[in-house]
């Protein structure tokens, strides 16, 4: 072929740009989550002066969304953007690095990861797979979800059919709910027709985009099950090690910048979206009743204790998480919470 002279491996020189593929668990250009890898890629391309270029592939374009970790670990791509809770089947402790019901919020989570020993534990967890994790953005406190019926007491959760994956789903089952798994395409129609009674999604920005207000009238806060869901960038270790030191720094700094950028975007857009939902679509925004919250909290305690007993890695990481959480919570009671109440 005519192009072989220019692109063949034999002619590769040091000046040739390094090309990385980044696969994600979201459709390309997905609001919020899907912007983070794009932001990252733009930063890297600009900072490296084009010496390292990152091409972003949406879910399914190269590999399906839930295959991101394997693709990075096997080295078929250099990077991925996803959420740690998807790798629960490989590492029962992984969900701690995305969200725990009634766990830390975004500020606390970032602090634990970068100043509380969390990142070291995370790297240690992924090391056997040849994968290096970086914080990859955070949605902030999510919403509890969309409900077709009003929830006035704990009894209303009895037999309630809700799409709620992950640890949240397990806790939900503990209090009498029926967690249902559905594909993305089926969620809206199933909620509309009443095949399910409720679903959680992300927060106002993504939920407005998904049009869930057309299928359910009640929008409950707050996201007890995902109080600040952390996303992740994952990098194949061999690929990372093969980069010159300056490009390694650029990758690391770009993840850090994209991490913050995602939260900024969510903070700005969630508020706008919530206003639209209330004012334009007449959505009833309500808080889950206190007895529901208490029951969920108790069930969370039970589920987490069971998880820690079943898996030593979970126990070790959760101990670090909890120790940090207990400390930071005490201070935030005095600072953030008092301030929220007073302002």
């Amino acid at each position: 072929a005519p192009s072989s002279a220019t692109t063949g491996p034999a002619t590769k020189t040091a000046a040739e740009p390094i090309k990385w593929k980044l696969v994600t668990s979201w459709p390309k250009n997905f609001p919020g989550l899907g912007q983070t890898p794009e932001t990252f890629a733009n930063y890297v391309n600009a900072m490296s002066g084009g010496r390292l270029t990152v091409t972003v592939y949406g879910a399914g374009e190269l590999v399906p969304g839930f295959e991101v970790f394997d693709a990075v670990s096997q080295g078929s791509v250099q990077m991925g953007h996803s959420g740690a809770y998807y790798w629960k089947g490989k590492m029962p402790a992984a969900p701690i690095f995305s969200a725990i019901p009634f766990g830390m919020n975004v500020t606390e989570m970032n602090a634990w990861l970068h100043y509380g020993g969390g990142m070291e534990l995370w790297r240690e967890l992924y090391a056997p797979f040849g994968v290096i994790p970086f914080a990859g953005g955070n949605t902030g406190v999510q919403m509890a979800g969309w409900f077709k019926k009003e929830i006035t007491a704990l009894e209303d959760f009895d037999g309630l059919k809700m799409r709620i994956p992950g640890l949240g789903g397990e806790v939900f089952k503990e209090v009498g709910g029926v967690p249902v798994t559905l594909t993305g395409g089926e969620i809206f129609t199933s909620l509309q027709t009443g095949a399910i009674d409720a679903t959680e999604w992300v927060g106002p920005y993504n939920d407005l985009a998904f049009g869930l207000f057309r299928a359910a009238d009640f929008y409950y806060h707050s996201g007890w099950h995902e109080p600040g869901t952390a996303l992740e960038f994952i990098v194949n270790k061999e690929a990372f090690d093969s980069l010159p030191a300056d490009l390694q720094s650029i990758v690391e700094v770009a993840t850090r910048a994209a991490n913050q950028d995602t939260l900024d975007e969510y903070t700005a857009r969630n508020n706008q979206a919530m206003q639209t939902l209330i004012k334009e679509h007449g959505v009833a925004v309500k808080a889950l009743p206190e007895d529901v919250m208490l029951a969920l909290k108790a069930a969370t305690e039970k589920v987490l204790t069971e998880k820690a007993a079943a898996d030593p890695q979970f126990a070790k990481i959760y101990a670090s998480y909890k120790a940090f959480y207990d400390g930071v919570r005490e201070y935030h009671e005095l600072s953030e919470k008092t301030y929220y109440d007073n302002r």
Partner: peptide
């Protein structure tokens, strides 16, 4: 090959809570 071996090494389970541990 390595994709499947890795899964066996981990005895990989479901990504869903309460799912089948037979991935």
């Amino acid at each position: 090959w390595s994709y499947v071996l890795e899964s066996w090494r981990l005895l990989e389970g479901s990504k869903e809570a309460g799912g089948l541990p037979l991935v």
